[in-house]
Design a protein around this nucleic acid. Sequence first.
DNA 1: GCCACTTCGTAAATCGTTTTACCACGGGTG
DNA 2: CACCCGTGGTAAAACGATTTACGAAGTGGC
Lengths: 347, 347
Amino acid sequence: MPRKRRGPTPSRSSSPTIRDVARRAGVSTGTVSNVLIGERGVRLASRLSVMKAAEALGYKSNHMASSLRRGHTRTIGVVVPDLSNEFFSGLVTHWESQAATAGYEILVASSGDNPETETRRIQSLIARRVDGLLIAAARDDFGAIPGFPGVLPPAVLVDRAAGHKRFDTVSSDNVAAGYEGTAHLIKLGHRDIALLTSADSHLHLRDRVQGYRDALKEHGLADRARLVIGGRSVEACRVAVEQEFSRPRRPTAIFASTFFATLGAIKAIHSLGIALPRDISLVAFEHSEWATVFQPYLTAVAQRREELASNSWSVLLDRIGSPKAKPRRVKIPVNFSIRDSARPLQS
Amino acid sequence: MPRKRRGPTPSRSSSPTIRDVARRAGVSTGTVSNVLIGERGVRLASRLSVMKAAEALGYKSNHMASSLRRGHTRTIGVVVPDLSNEFFSGLVTHWESQAATAGYEILVASSGDNPETETRRIQSLIARRVDGLLIAAARDDFGAIPGFPGVLPPAVLVDRAAGHKRFDTVSSDNVAAGYEGTAHLIKLGHRDIALLTSADSHLHLRDRVQGYRDALKEHGLADRARLVIGGRSVEACRVAVEQEFSRPRRPTAIFASTFFATLGAIKAIHSLGIALPRDISLVAFEHSEWATVFQPYLTAVAQRREELASNSWSVLLDRIGSPKAKPRRVKIPVNFSIRDSARPLQS
DNA sequence: GCCACTTCGTAAATCGTTTTACCACGGGTG
DNA sequence: CACCCGTGGTAAAACGATTTACGAAGTGGC
C-alpha cells in the first residue's frame, strides 16, 4: 500500500544528504554508505554511479550523524591552563598536528589554572562526547571531583599531576630539572642560591623545589635553602625577588623555576641595577624563541615539548584502544643548556 | 496490540540517555526534554521528578544527537597559520574565552600558512558542521577555491586578506602601521631606512610596505626605499639583514615589520657586532611579554589582539544571525610605542 | 450544562548516518 | 536437479535528542 509516500523533504538549500546521493545514483542509502566507507563489496557499476552522484552534488558526510551512529566522535578535548603561554601553545600545536594526520580534530579549552573553571570546561567537553581528553591540570587531586572518575572518557594528564593513581600521566622529570640547575650553580661556586617559583600548590613545582633541596643537601648546603615564592605572574615574581634582595645576605645566584619566575627575575635584576651575569648568576626556565636573542644567552632548563606532546598523544590513543589497561606513567627528561647567564662565583 | 515490545536496550554501561531519565521519572522523553530545555511549561511535580532522576543518573545531554536534530553545533572552527606564534595563540585565547562564555566550543586547526593544508583543514571543519569559521587565512584570494564560497558556513577573515569582497574581514590597519613606524624614524633624522619583511605574498604584509613607501614619499625620500624580503623564519630574516649590511651604503635604521623580522634583525645586529641603539635604530613588530625584559626596550608596533579577537567574534555571531547581510570590513588601529631602540641619527 | 480555551503530557516523526537482517541471483558441486 | 554459498543489493532499525500533532484534563464564561 505505497500510496501514502514519505514526506516530500524537498531538498532544502542546505547540504545534500546521503539520500540525495542515493536517489541520484539510483541505489539505496545503504549502498552509498558502503561505497563511501568501503565496508562491503559493491559492484563496480554501482560504485561508479554513486561516486559520480556524490561528486556532482558536492556531498559531504555529516559528521554529527555519523558520530551519533558509530558512537565515537574522532574528537579529542584539550584542556590547558593558559593558551597564551608558549609552553602550552607549543603542546597544543603538536597535538593539533598529530590529530590532523590521524583524522582527529581537537576542541581546546582554557582553565585559567582555576579548578572550578577547569571542571566546567571538562564537563562541556564530555557533553560533546570527545573520544579522549588531554589535560594539563589545574590541580593535582583529580580523583576528588564528584562523579568525575566514573564518566570521564579516556584521559591523559600531561605536564601536571605526575604519577596520579587513576590516570595515565606524561610529564617532565621535574625533580631532575631542579637538581640539575642547582648542581650546576653549586659547581660554579655559588652557595647562596635562591630558588624562585610561582606557587607551591602544584606537584610539578614542588618537584622542582625537591630537586633543588636534593642538590643542596648532597653538597652539604641543606641549611642554605632560600625558597622564594613569587606568584602566578611576572610582576609578583619581580616583587618577590626585589624583596629577597633587600634582606641582609644577598643571594649570588637565582634559579628561576618557571616561566613567570624567569621574566620576573630578569625584571628585578634590571630594576635593581645589578649586572647579569657579572654580579649575579641566573638559571632560567624557558621555552621561547625570544630566549635566543636575549643577552646574555640564558643558561636554562627547557622542557621537551615535542616529546611531551607526542608521548601523551600516543598514550591517549593506547588508552582509547584498551580502556582497562593499568595507568601508565611516562617521565620525560629535560634539556639543560649551559650558556652565559650563570658564571663562576667571583670571590 | 502492545505485545511486541520495543527491543530491550538494557541500558549499556555507557552514558544514560534521555530515555533512561524518562523511564526513571515516569514520564515521556518529550517531557524530559521540555524540562531540560525549558521550551514549554511543565507541572512542578513532573519537573522535580525529572530533575531528580537526571541528577541521580548523572545524565548529560548528548551533544551529537542534539546538534543533529537542531541543525547547529554551537561549535566554531578556528584556522590559524601557526598556533605557536604568540600573536595567533593570543587570538585563540581570546576567542576561546568568548566562546566559553557564549556556550560555544572551538575546534582549532593549523594551516602552517600553506594554502593546500588550509583547504583540507577547512573541509574537515565543514564536515563537522561548525556553525562558523574564524580564519587567519594563508592566502588572499579566498574566492578562488573550487566549490568553496558556496558551501562555506558563515566565516570571518581575521588579520589577513583585509577587505575581501565576499567575506567579512577584521584586521589591523597595516598601512598605518607601516606609515607610523617609518615616519617616526624619519622624524629622528634617519634617511636610510630598511624595511624588513617576511614575504611579499600576503596583502597584510604588502600593506605595511605600502605605509612605509607612503611615509618615504611624503618626506621626499621615495627613492631611498630599501625593501628587504627575508623569509618566513627568524634565520632567513637574519641572513637577509646581514646581506643588506654587506652592501655599500649601510642603513641607519631597520623597521622590522613582522615578528620573524624582529627576531632576525636583532640576531643580525648581534652577530654583526653593531650596538643597538647606538649604531643602529630599530622599530619592531612584537606581541610578546619577552619584549618587556629585552634591552633596549623596543620601540614597536603592536597589534591589538584583544580588539581583533573580540571584534571578529561579534562580527561572526552577527553573520550567523543574518547570513544575507552585506560583508563588513572592520579595521583596527595599531599601538605604536616609542621606547628606546630607535634614537635620533648621530650625524 | 456546554463550549472554548489553556495546560500538560504523550507518541511518533525527524535529523543523517551506519548497520543489521533479509532476499534474489548465479554458479558451482555432488 | 537439489543444495549451498558468495555476492550485491535493499528496507528498516538503530543512534539520542527535539519537536510536532494530538489528546486528556481542568477552568471559566454564559
